Simulated scan of single mutants.
Amino acid sequence: MGIFDGATDGIYRDKDVLDEDYQPDQVLEREDEIADYRDALLDVLFGRTPDNIFLYGKAGVGKTAVTNFVLGELRAEVETRDTADPIHISRVNCDSETTYSVIRELANGLLPATHSPYAAKGYSTSDLFDELYEQMERVGGTHLIVLDEVDHLSDPDALLYQLPRARANGYLNDARVGIIGISNNYTFRNTLSSKVKSTLMETEISFSTYDADELVSILEHRADLAFQPGVCEDSAITLCAAYAAKDDGSARQAIDLLRAAADAAWKADDPTITDAHVKDVRDDVDRGQLHDKISDQTTNAQRVLEAAARLQNKHGEPARTREIQESYQQLARSYGDPDPSTSLKFAQRHLDDLEMLGFVIKSEENRGKGGGRSYIWEVDMDLETVIDVREDIEQTNAA
């Protein structure tokens, strides 16, 4: 008798709907955002250049799901419209990328099968732009370029200035371009040059975190698809939603928690998913979520966060900007960076971004009359877990 004999799906009907890459047929609790997205893309249906669109919001609040849904609907509608040009959707994850590497990836994605890919070296950025424009013109139609994690792009100004102006500058005649930027960083636009901001003229769509009621609605829909009837107790769904809403309002966290609780029930051969299963798996899921959130940040931002966490853990109180900067330098050197930044503004910028993302809390310190302005930073998550996660990430990167 084999070890897998008699194995069944048990409580599951379709476990795939709980996977991170599952794309639902309908996106719940994002009606306003979908309407704004639709309005910004309407010109595509009439052969005109669409608005550039930038989406802002924390991880797990529906930016990618809404993008996939809206672009799928747009593609289907374009096929029914004589006034619409064909659309070509290109997606690039900009994490740790440069304008050069992004343009190369976009150009390679448009090449015919008989053409060799553009090499990683041997071209100037200007040459690669020309190659991209040539391929866009050859293919024609409207090109929608989705730049995920656009705030992680090392030099965004060149890319975000050149592409929207390609027709105006005579590089494109038949083809049209629309940029869709997706960012976790609400302050990203402030980092762009004034000429880029005036060129983009983008539609901004902000995705707020989900509240508990919205998460219940999302989880109930997924549970109906994922489980056999009557398997998941209503209170277990409510508890998953409450935990996620209290943390960071992420649908991904709520769904991960529900899946982990379901796995616990399945492995124990329990007939229903209960509050007890949710409580049992919460710590492990929270740690995994924290690992993902931290690893999504740039290396320097992660190290600044770790520096703040280590200082707070050591002294039992939040740290000042300069203390964090000095601790960051020591950490960076210990991880093999021979020349870490010594600028106080460097630490301030990363700490401001971390505050916006909910990692830290900023308070102004009263230094008395004429003492100037000073800030202290409190890491708003479990310190030991932050430190452990960071050590895991560095060890993985070094392997």
Score class of each variant (00 low, 15 high):
1 M>V: 09
9 D>R: 04
11 I>Q: 08
14 D>Q: 10
21 D>G: 01
22 Y>M: 03
28 L>A: 13
31 E>D: 14
39 D>S: 12
43 D>R: 12
44 V>F: 08
45 L>R: 01
46 F>D: 08
50 P>A: 12
55 L>Q: 03
62 G>P: 04
66 V>A: 04
67 T>W: 07
74 L>S: 09
81 R>W: 14
82 D>N: 10
84 A>F: 03
85 D>Q: 12
87 I>K: 05
88 H>Q: 14
93 N>A: 05
96 S>R: 05
97 E>N: 04
102 V>T: 11
104 R>S: 09
107 A>N: 10
111 L>S: 09
111 L>F: 09
118 Y>E: 08
118 Y>N: 13
122 G>C: 10
123 Y>V: 12
132 L>N: 07
134 E>R: 14
134 E>T: 10
134 E>Q: 12
139 V>E: 04
139 V>K: 13
139 V>C: 00
143 H>K: 05
147 L>W: 04
151 D>F: 00
151 D>S: 04
153 L>T: 06
159 L>M: 09
161 Y>S: 13
162 Q>A: 14
166 A>K: 09
178 G>Q: 04
179 I>A: 10
186 Y>E: 12
186 Y>A: 13
189 R>L: 07
196 V>M: 01
200 L>D: 10
203 T>A: 14
205 I>H: 02
205 I>K: 02
209 T>I: 09
210 Y>A: 07
210 Y>G: 10
216 V>I: 14
216 V>F: 09
218 I>A: 06
222 R>I: 09
223 A>W: 01
223 A>D: 07
235 S>D: 15
237 I>E: 08
239 L>E: 14
243 Y>D: 00
246 K>P: 00
246 K>E: 15
252 R>C: 12
255 I>P: 07
256 D>H: 01
268 A>C: 01
269 D>N: 15
272 T>L: 14
273 I>N: 03
275 D>W: 00
279 K>F: 03
281 V>C: 02
282 R>H: 13
288 G>D: 06
289 Q>E: 13
289 Q>D: 08
292 D>S: 13
299 T>C: 00
299 T>E: 10
300 N>G: 15
300 N>A: 13
307 A>V: 10
309 A>T: 04
310 R>H: 09
323 E>W: 06
325 Q>S: 14
325 Q>H: 13
333 R>Q: 15
336 G>S: 11
337 D>P: 06
337 D>S: 12
344 L>N: 07
346 F>G: 06
350 H>V: 01
351 L>H: 06
354 L>R: 00
354 L>S: 05
358 G>E: 04
360 V>H: 02
364 E>P: 05
366 N>W: 03
374 S>M: 03
374 S>V: 06
376 I>W: 00
378 E>Y: 01
380 D>A: 13
383 L>D: 06
386 V>P: 05
388 D>T: 06
391 E>W: 00
394 E>A: 09
395 Q>S: 15
